[in-house]
């Protein structure tokens, strides 16, 4: 395990209804950086994130965060440790106002003064929280909802922000703003674990990249290394690393290759 590993996945098997989607996943998330997980549809990216936030309990393996194994902990216990997830589908409570939604981000914080102070800070970072405070969340556009979700997740002042395909359904202009917001969160000291279909753009801003294929880690390295790896394009064109690069890619371990 690298010294600066913030989260370590060790031999993680997980899935649904008895079938494994993740098959012996071993990888790490660097402290203070942005780590992007990319891979084709069905490779297990979102499943991996669910194991971090406690929505899915791995069948086997460990997920070590701050020296504690997250496996078996409830989402609430994991939140208390400082891990917040923004799921793939819009997760705002549509019938509640924007402010109610953002305040819910600090549901576990009992001190009302602390909540008020954080809300003020969030308002400065995300003007929409003030501008649309009393509007129902369901009345916002997709991009606006995503921003409010980001605002909400920061109310807990998390150490690790887990984002599952935040660009899904956003127009190009909003997309740019969304990536800028992720960068801003990272600059504010949050470690970010990101799953993103818009792989090239995400890897460009990432410190670290992991490629999942068929539930296994096939590549890992710095963002630019993964981005410039000759096989990554082929992978997204529907091929597999083994099929396209048998001559050039020889994994160091039976399951994965590091390009570092």
């Amino acid at each position: 395990m690298a010294e600066d590993a913030f989260v370590s996945f060790r031999g993680v098997f997980a899935g649904y209804g008895g079938a494994d989607v993740l098959k012996d996943v071993n990888c790490e998330v660097e402290r203070g950086g942005v780590t992007t997980i990319v891979g084709p549809n069905g490779s297990g990216k979102s499943t991996l994130l669910k194991t971090v936030s406690g929505l899915l309990k791995p069948r086997e393996g460990e997920i070590i965060f701050k020296g504690q194994n997250l496996v078996g902990k409830t989402p609430k216990e994991i939140l208390k440790l400082g891990v917040v997830q923004v799921p793939q589908n819009h997760s705002l409570f549509r019938e509640m106002t924007v402010q109610e939604n953002v305040e819910l981000g600090a549901f576990l914080v009992k001190d009302k003064k602390v909540v008020a102070s954080r809300l003020n800070m969030i308002r400065e970072m995300f003007p929409i929280v003030t501008e649309r405070a009393n509007d129902k969340a369901g009345s916002l556009s997709g991009g606006q909802q995503r921003l409010v979700e980001f605002a909400r997740c920061l109310m807990l002042e998390p150490d690790l922000v887990v984002l599952d395909e935040p660009s899904m359904g956003l127009d190009p202009k909003t997309l740019k703003s969304m990536f800028a917001t992720i960068k801003m969160m990272n600059n504010a000291g949050r470690t970010v674990l990101l799953v993103e279909q818009n792989a090239r753009r995400a890897l460009k801003m990432s410190h670290h990249g992991v490629v999942l294929e068929n539930g296994k880690v096939r590549l890992s390295g710095t963002g630019s290394e993964v981005l410039n790896h000759p096989e990554i394009g082929a992978l997204y064109l529907g091929g597999s690393i083994e099929e396209t690069t048998a001559a050039t890619v020889v994994p160091e371990s039976p399951e994965s290759e590091s390009v570092e």
């Binding site: 929505l55 409830t74 989402p75 609430k76 939140l79 799921p87 549901f107």
Partner: peptide, 12 residues
């Protein structure tokens, strides 16, 4: 409204 989202903000 949404049990998964509720769990993700810490609601038991």
């Amino acid at each position: 409204a949404d049990q998964t989202s509720a769990a993700l903000v810490g609601i038991d």
